[in-house]
Amino acid sequence: MTDKQAENTGTEQTVILAEKLDLTFQTNDGPVHALKGVSLDIGKGDFVSFIGPSGCGKTTFLRCMADLEQPTGGTITVNGVSPEAARMARAYGYVFQAAGLYPWRTIGRNISLPLEIMGYSKADQAERVSRVLELVELAGFENKFPWQLSGGMQQRASIARALAFDADILLMDEPFGALDEIVRDHLNEQLLHLWARTEKTIAFVTHSIPEAVYLSTKIVVMSPRPGRITDVIESPLPKERPLDIRESPAFLEVAHRVREGLRAGHAHV
């Protein structure tokens, strides 16, 4: 697998490495195996999508990377250290399903919030805010309040917020799940541009097969009860991807394989 990664990204450096990861939640109805024996490595500069039905543990896996959940077994490292150490070192930006902007802060001050917390200087904050606003095509909206923006723009602002500080990893938990198809297409396209420009490593949770295939260099198919990986697909698509690549045979072939993987996962239930 590492060889193929090297082909895709031009490097062999592993950023996230999970080995036989288990996570069991103790509930009143007995233990729930959110993750069981999950092993995966994500290389530097990869765009990895996690796809699967609800309860397959894709969000839980992402939250383990972010030190928001504690695995009950196995090992996971981020940048070669524990997720906790990586979190302390502010190694990643996390984009949640909802934009979660603070209504009492302008877009600019929402984006500078993590910078304030991390102790960046005022001048540096201002410079970074205008740079990332440019990056997500929201220049000029710095002094608007969140309610003055559409849902798609709010989500772009929240991505800008995750990009504002120097994290090489971007963890995205269904960031476009609540948006309509047209806005979603547009944001997917923008996200690819952004990924190409910033060369970040992105882990992306989604429900949508086209979205996963369109965005990713690697697609991880998961299935529920217990949450596990059923297939890992290296995408043969080129890095440069116009929207109409989605009608190409190569694209449809990958999509077909993802669908097969999802169906196989269900067959086990």
Binding site: R87, R90, I117
Partner: peptide, 19 residues
């Protein structure tokens, strides 16, 4: 989610309170 977000930024308890 907002509290988790603060955690991802490694915000201190007082930063979470005031901000």
């Amino acid at each position: 989610m907002q509290l988790d977000q603060m955690r991802t930024w490694n915000a201190s308890a007082s930063q979470t309170f005031w901000r």
